[in-house]
Amino acid sequence: MTSAAGYNFAYLDEQTKRMIRRALLKAVAIPGHQIPFGSREMPLPYGWGTGGIQVTAAVLGPDDVLKVIDQGADDTTNAVSIRRFFARTAGVATTTDTAAATLIQTRHRIPEKPLREDQILVYQVPQPEPLSRLEPSRAETRRMHALAEYGLMYVKLYEDITRFGHVAISYDYPVMVNGRHLMAPSPIPAFDNPKMHRMAALQLFGAGREKRIYAVPPYTSVVSLDFDDHPFRTTRAPQCCGLCGADSSYLDEIVADDKGGRLFVCSDTDFCEERRAAGHVGPEGVAA
């Protein structure tokens, strides 16, 4: 374990990490409730995961094994940069293997493989307030959370069903946490929402620009909002993965050539690779 000279372990100073940990403790104590924290300037722009990075820095220990994914992939710019950032400033081991990681920072996905009690999932959150588009006043949304007045969110669902015949929210689909707090699950696809419910791993959410932290402790109920006669349903592309043949994973659509050819592949690259290594082959794939 070696960290870059001149930086404190995991970049942030100890006082800041302590402040963030205090916010995290509060967040875990009140599942789904947004806790304000003193978000710091980080060496990357807002919207690139400043909230998630600060949470990760605050909980990261020298023995942790870190995995970072962006849209499910380990090899995208954002994921690579953040992974390298902590490798340099904290000297921790990194991995792309979901099962090997103890701490996973994610943008917009939950890994396909179920997580364990000894793992922590850190979400990067652009907008922590699920009611932000419906009620412009922050004072009012805080009051609505305090009094658990969530009728307005249902008005949004009602409008969707009326206009489109179904709830037209495909990502950041609002959830009720522990039967009390309405929560934005960050822009993960609605497909991933059921994975949050009673998840064995601790889930932490950091919003850097909005300066909010919230959490879902292990085995907490997380229920997607719906109507009795229009129950929540997940959707995915009807294809199976072109590379590994998986028919139940979340798929990305990739333009494969200049003639408009398209390929559907697992968005979770680690999941896909592991399947191919185990001998699964999709219609477009080559055996590993």
Partner: peptide, 27 residues
């Protein structure tokens, strides 16, 4: 009124706020 919400949504809001969760009944 919520001017960006349909007439039906406006009428139904108080029902939803009271915990009614059946779209068909609200409509």
């Amino acid at each position: 009124l919520r001017m960006a919400v349909s007439a039906g949504g406006n009428v139904g809001e108080r029902l939803m706020a009271q915990g009614r969760r059946h779209y068909g009944d609200i409509r």
